[in-house]
Computed example of a mutant assay.
Amino acid sequence: MDITKVVNDLTAEDWEIDPVDLATITPYITSKIRRFGIWHLDMEPPEQEAVGHLRTAA
């Protein structure tokens, strides 16, 4: 939202905004940070049968 406001303000002051330059602006660093971490998916079925029923006291 802040970037959008600044760009709108600059456009209102007759600044020329190049869309190519604007496309490189980002509010967070993406080149060295994995936003959601590194995930490993094990697609092999479990060795034992999964327990799918919750036993509760009657």
Rank of each mutant, 00 (worst) to 15 (best):
W39D: 07
V7M: 12
T30L: 03
A12F: 05
I17G: 03
T56C: 06
T24I: 00
V51W: 02
G37L: 00
I29M: 12
W15T: 05
D21W: 12
I38V: 13
I3E: 02
W39R: 08
T11Y: 01
G52H: 11
E16L: 00
E44M: 03
E16G: 01
P19S: 03
L54F: 11
M43A: 08
A12N: 13
I38W: 00
E49D: 15
K5S: 10
M43Q: 10
I25Y: 06
K32D: 15
P45K: 08
H53T: 15
Q48G: 04
T4Q: 12
K5M: 12
K32A: 14
P27G: 04
L10C: 07
D18F: 04
I17E: 07
L22W: 04
D42H: 09
D9Y: 15
T30A: 05
L10K: 15
Y28N: 05
V7R: 04
R55T: 08
D42M: 08
D21Y: 08
L54R: 14
A58W: 04
R55F: 00
H53L: 11
T4A: 15
Q48V: 11
D14V: 06
K32G: 13
E44W: 09
M43N: 02
A50S: 13
A50K: 10
E13D: 09
T4G: 07
N8H: 12
D9W: 13
T24R: 11
D42I: 08
L22H: 10
L54M: 05
E13S: 05
L41K: 13
A23S: 13
G52P: 05
A50I: 15
I17T: 11
T4L: 14
T56W: 06
I38D: 03
T11A: 12
A57M: 09
V51T: 15
E13P: 00
R35Q: 11
D18N: 15
T11R: 15
E49G: 14
N8E: 15
I17A: 07
I17R: 06
P27S: 09
I17Q: 10
T30V: 09
L54C: 10
R55M: 07
Q48K: 08
R34G: 04
V7C: 04
K32Q: 13
P19R: 01
M43K: 07
L54Y: 03
T24A: 05
D18M: 06
A12T: 05
A57K: 10
I29N: 09
V7Q: 08
I25W: 07
K5Y: 11
P45E: 13
R55W: 04
I33A: 01
I29P: 09
H53Q: 14
T30E: 02
T30D: 12
I17Y: 03
A12Y: 06
A58H: 13
I38T: 13
T11S: 06
I25P: 10
